[in-house]
Amino acid sequence: MSDTKSARPLSPHLSIYRFKPTMAMSIVHRVTGVGLYLGTVFFVWWLLAAASGPEAFSYASAFFGSIIGRLFLFVYSWVLLHHMFGGLRHFVWDMGHAITREQSTLAAQATLVASLASTLLLWLIVWIV
């Protein structure tokens, strides 16, 4: 990629557009993806702790069982489910459906509703079990 600056006009950037649900969900899909990427470190930590023995595992368990740990898991589970529903939306688009303005806006809103509802349901199950 060349670093040469030219006088050619640039395409309009983010600040020029009116806020839309589809745009918000597109950004959130990418941000949640990056979040999941970094969060895999915790996945590996838990597995390595379990593989290392009872003492290492007790440290990991203490963290994930603490208020901060539970808050992290709660947010991470929403991020995971939101990215999953966002991915399902992409599958629908890949098949050539829900491309119109009304349908895509509805799908964007449905993604957020589905991720929030499923996260709450998941933690209700965790709380009951």
Partner: peptide, 27 residues
């Protein structure tokens, strides 16, 4: 993405089942 859906759902169920279980049970 497709395989992630199935695998992650399995893993979430597994984690829910394992949460607060002692080390020996997880092992």
């Amino acid at each position: 993405a497709l395989s992630n859906i199935a695998l992650i759902l399995f893993f979430v169920v597994f984690l829910v089942a394992m949460h607060d279980e002692p080390y020996a049970v997880v092992r």
